[in-house]
């Protein structure tokens, strides 16, 4: 794959996706990426998480470059 996005999963999202890291075909922005992930992993839709692009948490749809790293961070509550 020449153009891809690296995705890091945390918390219970690891169980849903079946791994803590995956590479995904390149898409241009975070909204498109999340929709593509929902289509592939239906159970992800019921989860809520914050999104970080290249280790920076984003609040709105954000442009992604080839080989960027996108982390999906659900809120943890345990202590």
């Amino acid at each position: 794959m020449d153009e891809y996005i690296k995705i890091l999963l945390f918390g219970n999202l690891v169980e849903i996706v079946g791994g803590c890291e995956l590479t995904f075909p390149y898409v241009a922005d975070t909204e498109t990426l999340i929709e593509a992930l929902y289509a592939k992993y239906e159970n992800l839709r019921a989860q809520t998480f914050s999104i970080a692009v290249n280790k920076s948490i984003i609040l709105e749809n954000t442009k992604i470059e080839n080989r960027d790293e996108v982390a999906l961070l659900p809120p943890f509550s345990g202590g």
């Binding site: 945390f10 918390g11 948490i57 809120p75 943890f76 345990g78």
Partner: peptide
């Protein structure tokens, strides 16, 4: 906060411009 082998750690409200929990995770989420 902890989930199994993972943890999240942050410091909030150290100044007027510093972040709070709601900047990281919205409550509706």
């Amino acid at each position: 906060a902890i989930y199994q082998y993972q943890a999240q750690l942050a410091v909030f409200n150290t100044s007027k411009s510093s972040i709070q929990l709601r900047d990281v995770f919205e409550e509706q989420s």
